[in-house]
Amino acid sequence: SDAPNAAEMVNNYDWMKNFSFLDFIRDVGKHITVNYMMAKDSVKKRLSGESQQGMSFTEFSYQLCQGYDFLHLYKEKNCRLQLGGSDQWGNITTGTELIRRTAGGEAYALTCPLITKADGGKFGKTESGNVWLDPRYTSPYKFYQFWLNVSDADAEKYIKIFTELTREEVAALVEEQAQNPGARPLQKRLAKEITTMVHSAADYEAAVEASQILFSNHAGETLRKIDEATLLAVMEGVPQFEVPRSAISEGVKLADLLTETAAVFPSKGEMRKMVQGGGVSINKEKISDPYAPVSADMLLNDKYILVQRGKKNYFLLHVAD
């Protein structure tokens, strides 16, 4: 941007790559005492026994590296303020102290509380089970499911942070949740608002539709429409069988495919009984003939077949070339 206040992206490797270790401890390390570094809460917690791992020299000295980054940006870019999460307070203030001691200048730190989950874990990219804004890493369906499945306490907190709902709207949802927690109005509205904001209204509608696949008896059309990534996300945890493409060819019967090629049923007799009782579906459509021919028309995304045995048992056949 050519705006007068345009942001500038810099890489600290540019000013650290030629900085030798000896030069660093001579020119930077001498200005900060070990006592000062040990007084940081982040260091004290690691050394007080709260962590069984202890603290490596790399972690201990990291605050000097980050502090020097602030000093460099202060000198070269007139940077006076560093922002970050509250866990970065110690590292940022080491920078303000370096600036005061070496340049006699003033600089400032501004931190905000970390977003945490109900179990106290950080909400960050290094934590497991979190979501990305990029659909390549978290599909809209998984993104929607993440927010839909947060705890009541997290839902009440996140809806205030991540959505643009008014205070009155949030208060009404909190009251509704208290009256009928089983309906989970907070989670549903949170999932809707943030999935629509980050992805799109169409992606949100598709995610809602996809989430009903395993619970609806009329989801055959939806299965045909969803993309492969969403299909696999919905079927995560469902037992899968890999079958050769030759198994989806003229002359092969469903009973052969689902007993001999993929052990969905232990025997053709058991499959036949369940089919007669209306308990077997292919791609959410009930079948009436266990010996019906298998065809390529059954394939979802040209490579998958969803088999339902009874009310709750699903199997996904993956056709490999």
Rank of each mutant, 00 (worst) to 15 (best):
Q88T: 11
V131W: 08
T102I: 15
I248T: 11
Y74P: 11
P113C: 05
P266I: 08
L254N: 11
G67S: 06
E8P: 00
Q212L: 05
I287N: 05
N217A: 13
C65M: 13
Q212H: 12
A207P: 03
S48H: 11
F24Q: 04
K122V: 06
G277D: 12
K142G: 09
E242S: 05
I32K: 12
G67K: 08
K311S: 10
Q66R: 07
I282W: 00
E260H: 05
S211W: 04
L306W: 08
I161K: 09
A207T: 02
M271V: 09
A39V: 14
T94D: 10
F162I: 05
R101P: 06
G220M: 01
V280I: 13
R189M: 02
K142A: 13
Q177N: 07
A3D: 13
A109E: 05
N78L: 00
D14A: 14
Q308D: 02
N149F: 11
A107I: 00
T94Y: 08
K284W: 03
V275H: 11
Q82M: 03
A263W: 00
S1T: 13
K117L: 13
V28E: 01
M9C: 13
M37N: 02
S61K: 07
Q82I: 00
S56Y: 02
P113W: 01
N313H: 15
R184G: 06
I305N: 07
P239R: 08
L223A: 05
E59V: 06
S139P: 15
K44T: 13
L83G: 02
I25N: 08
F146V: 07
K45W: 02
S56I: 03
L317V: 08
F315C: 04
L73K: 02
I115A: 07
A210R: 04
V198Q: 01
I305G: 07
D302H: 11
P185F: 02
T259G: 10
A172Q: 12
D14T: 14
R26S: 14
T116E: 08
S246G: 11
Q187A: 13
T33C: 02
L223H: 06
K117C: 07
Y141I: 09
Y36K: 13
V198N: 03
